[in-house]
């Protein structure tokens, strides 16, 4: 999805992990995924560059869909579909 398309998504859950170091963001995502309904969208905010690689890889293993990410204002915004 393009950055503009990602921005149009209405997340069911937002995980703001900015300021936490690896593996904090990934663990925050794992803990919060239970709060996302089936087919729901999670938005993850992270200032840790490794997160944008860790989250898609983790999502693939867990059977979730990685929708895309973009960098803006000094942090990454990543989208998953449960």
């Amino acid at each position: 999805m393009t950055k503009e398309e990602l921005k149009q998504l209405k997340p069911d859950k937002v995980v703001d992990a900015r300021g936490t170091a690896c593996p904090g963001p990934l663990l925050a995502v794992k803990q919060a995924i239970a709060d996302v309904p089936e087919g729901g969208i999670m938005e993850i905010l992270s200032s840790d560059e490794g997160t944008k690689r860790d989250v898609p890889r983790w999502a693939k293993k867990k059977g979730y869909e990685y929708l895309g990410d973009f960098e803006e204002s000094g942090y990454f915004t990543i989208y998953l579909k449960k």
Binding site: C22, P23, G24, L26, L27, V29, K30, K61
Partner: peptide, 10 residues
Amino acid sequence: GVILGGAAAE
């Protein structure tokens, strides 16, 4: 601890 975090995520 970092490696353990990765293992926990998995």
